[in-house]
Write a protein that binds this DNA or RNA. Structure first.
Lengths: 147, 147
DNA sequence: AACAATTCAATTGCGCGCAATAGAAATTTC
DNA sequence: GAAATTTCTATTGCGCGCAATTGAATTGTT
């Protein structure tokens, strides 16, 4: 029974993505509460744990976010002593974000988070990897459409 | 080359979902501007066009949203004359949402939106449907994990 | 019937997420 | 090298999205 209505909610890919995103946020909430981080803050740490000292711009490019989102987010983390902001000496337009010892130490606790995801998905890493790659292609197609 | 770091951003399914969701929002923005709707407002109309007169609760169940999100959203639509709110006579706790003629008329313009998505994805409806189903399963697994 | 527990919508508070704008710094152009 | 353009961060405004709470209406219990 094919879906004939082009405006049927449950047949729409966009809504499936939207609903899955919220489900992830709900799933992460109690796990990230243990780190006192929101999900976007967690993403920032994922980036910084891999490459400390990035500029706001570079961070935004990685996460597909702009300064309007990142600047206040970082300031909240700075207020809690988890990161440090430092203006670049070579190019004074740029602000670089550095982890403090406390921010670096958070990484240990964070290791539990992907483990919980793996468990929830039944340990099928191959299926998850394929889905991830499909989503990457989807994002590229959507971004390319208006370029 | 297997990904060994469990906290690597680009290998994470959650980030792929997160990034795809934002890409969809960006893609929809100019198309929904033509209807003067935000994406969540568009979702509400998708539901109402299919089943008019739902309660706030039923709407929330469909979209995985709560009254804290839906109530103010609906009030904005009501202020623009696109929907009407009416307290249920049988059960006065409930508020039912009805489309106005103007709200119903929006549907014509909305038909262009899924067409644009189809075009952006290269018309491969089968791949899109499989991805959609995978995301539905993902959402169910995540929701089931804490039940 | 009286009381307790549940359900539903609304509200408050806070953190995204993005458009639009501003202002400073760097780069390009002439 | 002066002027125009671009780049980068920060700010403002607005609409989600959700936790927590409130108050009214309904249902369940005894």
């Amino acid at each position: 029974m094919a879906q004939t209505d082009p405006l049927n909610l449950d047949s729409m890919l966009c809504f499936a993505v939207y609903a899955a995103e919220h489900a992830f946020t709900r799933f992460y909430k109690p796990r990230l509460d243990a780190l006192e981080l929101t999900y976007p803050q967690y993403l920032v740490f994922l980036v910084l744990w891999e490459s400390d000292g990035l500029t706001v711009k570079a961070l935004g490019d990685k996460l597909f976010l702009d300064s309007g989102t990142i600047t206040p987010l970082i300031k909240r983390l700075e207020g809690r002593g988890l990161v440090r902001r430092e203006r670049d000496k070579q190019d004074e337009r740029q602000v670089r974000i550095f982890l403090t010892d406390e921010g670096r130490a958070l990484r240990e606790k964070a290791l539990a988070v992907p483990l919980a995801v793996g468990k929830a998905l039944g340990g099928d890493a191959r299926t998850a990897a394929m889905l991830r790659d499909s989503l990457h292609r989807l994002r590229e197609q959507l971004d390319a459409a208006d370029a």
